[in-house]
Amino acid sequence: MDVSERDRRLIGALQAGLPLVRRPYAVIGEAVDMSESEVLRRIAALRDAGVIRRFGVIVRHHELGYRANAMMVWAVPEHQVDSLGERVAESPQVTLCYRRRPAPPQWPYNLYCMVHGRDRETVLAVRDELVARHGLEGMEHRVLFSGRRFKQRGARYLAPKQEAIGREANHGRA
């Protein structure tokens, strides 16, 4: 789906999250010159088109007590990475699963997944289970636990000028 300029503005206004008020869609609409009902229709359309993957409560794992957060990476032969990725993604403990371009020799890894656990042992047990279940033995692999979080916020896709609309909608009237 080609995202129209109007929808981009709406996405921009949604980036910082809905204002926590009784009629949040009306407030977002005011910021982007849409009626409340148009905002509702466009969000539904963007969801149906898959541009918006989910729309709702977005939690922070660390603050919920999931203190051991790991990015796991494997160097998988290129012809196997899609089939493995699709299977790894189905594991309930895996929150995100991606294929990325490797950067050899420093970084040969092309399959990534994120696992959040209450402690390191739990996360490493998930890793062992993924390795055993999906035949990942022998593939070069790393577990990168996260340390300090220097910055964490929702995705911002648009230009600063448009972001300002989102911030205004979120904080200016809540």
């Binding site: 999250g17 809905l18 977005i58 922070r60």
Partner: peptide
């Protein structure tokens, strides 16, 4: 809560 919003 990070936010009530969209993931793209």
């Amino acid at each position: 809560l990070s936010r009530v919003g969209a993931t793209l």
